[in-house]
Design a protein around this nucleic acid. Structure first.
Lengths: 204, 204, 204, 204
DNA sequence: AATGAATGAGGTTTCATTCAT
DNA sequence: GATGAATGAAACCTCATTCAT
């Protein structure tokens, strides 16, 4: 067995699969234990409660996202390159572990603990990071100045998230047999430039 | 009392408030009954189960959305006018009943019944309607042709939804004291035209 | 059915029997429910927790004791008559419901809630009452003055309690076939006057 | 380290502290292990079960009491001297290790095993010993003859126990700032001679 | 229509005990 | 001797749902 995969990780992964399949509130600790091939009692050796498992999934996952954003920030490239990299990374993460993404968007927001300051702080750092990229783009003349950076970051995130939800929830992808790469590039295109043809729009 | 407000409506509204405040799985039938100022037993005269209440909320609400989209469609105006009207309508609905919006985005997707064909059909009709507007815009040369209409509809919805989530979940609105009307117009602007300045982008 | 016996009382009596037989921590809510011939869920309709049942037993019982002591106090008679009446009453209570007495002495002191101020206050009022009787006796020259009233009240209670414990826990009474009345009168005698023959003892 | 203090003793003492503080049923094996600064698994090298620890505490402690009573019996002195010595010894034991006394009176009687013949026999030997002293006093004309020795032994024990309970459970002693020695002597006085002033009482 | 007592399936969590290391 | 991961029985409590009144 891979010595790096601890039992804690096995439980986390079992929980991600279980939550993703049945939803947090319909998942029993015994379902997770069964998936992890351990007794349900052992789960409590590693986590203090079912809620704690979900919070751990959330925090681990978001810390990884933030680390990746730091890495992206350090690479050379324009603000737009960075935002593109965020989109590409997000798609790749979902491609690699769509259960995790489902849990993040469907289950995490359902529990009270997510709304406690400690976790909201972590969550908001993601948007703050996006807003930083956008501010940078505005200063460099790449992004329109009249949009509030945070508003843009929400629109940016919402656009990508909406597409990825389809990707995550529909086994057969629905956009007329488009390849994933094509979807990514079209998404980037649409999010960045919108979809209307009146190019004078911004000039008003 | 308004004779049109039936007890059934009272229960529905109590459920919307309760689900919004505590989440579906943390809401007790007795919580809803208490909010409606009736006994919990009476709830079962009007609804067969707790799940049925949530599904009713979902269906009623989405049918109303679809009716509004029909009304919008019938009015004269371009496809872009229609899409703008959808955004404006959505903001107004949330302004009027943000609890309902919260339930729709947070609680409805948590229950299995939502994923049954009957309800998915209703849900997808909303996106199909959006896609129709977009196709219309593409035919009229208002919207870029290379984006798949459904993909655009998801991006459109995701963008607006992301902004509205902030509106729904943050008591103090967060975008630098912008007025709701300004947010709506900026959102329309950004969703339609994107946020980058390179106007040749679409021309590539 | 006796209309005065409420379901709450049925549960309380079932709990007294169950706690008495198996001890608080070995008694299951389902044991109590079974004894009361109801479903275990119904227990929680009347009591918020297992602990609350025990506390209710304690409080109800002690309030009754204190009421009896008030009644005794109001009757005419010396302080010694009052103390005798307390002893007699206690024996009668145990004779009528020895399970209740067992629960009071064995189970009630085992739970944390008993040591909360609210309940200690109630418990101590019993000793305070006894001490009042003793003070009265001291003022009337019936009881020796050099003993601290509270100390005497504890010795008084401890003596009687020790005898009653035997009565409560030994099906076949153990004192050489003495009748209950004889035991009561001998107990009164011994507690009041001690058991040594040196009558000058108090004169030292 | 004192070579005579075995790990077994360390566990016993940890258990006494733990049971005393939290009660038997609220004490976890891991609490005891933590107090003893060992792993909880090791407890099972020395004791077969949690119950066995409590029974061991009971048996060790009572065997010591019985040994002391033998020593007292062997010393020269009247029956009253012996009874006084028992009282003094009991107070001294509590003064030295009040946790042990608490466990003996609160926790030991809560477990079923205590009521098995083997342990009841040991427990009753204490009262039998007391009754022997009392019989001896009766034969020597020091103690009234009409009281059943066992009844007197229970009253004797109950009196002393009641006072000691106060001593064990109230950090600040409650009897008007009396010294321990004064309490002991007053207790002896009151238990032996009672507290009423009518010295003809026994003559009736 | 309306109430709320009653049911009971079912879940989370605890923890004594075992045993491989 | 010593550790602590692992097991699994068992208990409290919740609450959707039913139904007599």
């Amino acid at each position: 067995m891979n010595p790096k995969i601890t039992k804690r990780d096995i439980i986390i992964n079992a929980a991600i699969r279980t939550f993703s399949r049945k939803g947090y509130y319909n998942s029993r600790i015994s379902d997770i234990a069964e998936d992890a091939k351990i007794s349900h009692g052992l789960v409590y050796h590693y986590f203090s409660s079912k809620e704690q498992i979900l919070i751990t999934i959330f925090r681990d996952s978001f810390e990884e996202v933030l680390e990746e954003m730091s890495r992206i920030d350090k690479k050379k490239g324009t603000a737009l390159d960075k935002l593109k990299a965020v989109i590409t990374y997000t798609f790749k993460v979902v491609e690699h572990n769509r259960d995790l993404y489902k849990v993040r968007i469907m289950d995490v927001p359902c529990i009270q603990k997510f709304y406690e300051p400690e976790n909201q702080l972590l969550y908001n750092r993601y948007f703050a990071r996006l807003a930083d990229f956008i501010k940078e783009g505005q200063q460099k003349g790449l992004i329109i100045k009249k949009g509030a950076p945070l508003l843009i970051s929400h629109i940016f995130h919402g656009s990508v998230d909406a597409v990825i939800r389809q990707f995550a929830y529909n086994k057969e992808f629905i956009y007329e047999n488009m390849s994933l790469d094509l979807i990514i590039s079209q998404t980037i295109d649409l999010v960045f430039s919108g979809f209307i043809l009146d190019t004078d729009f911004h000039g008003n």
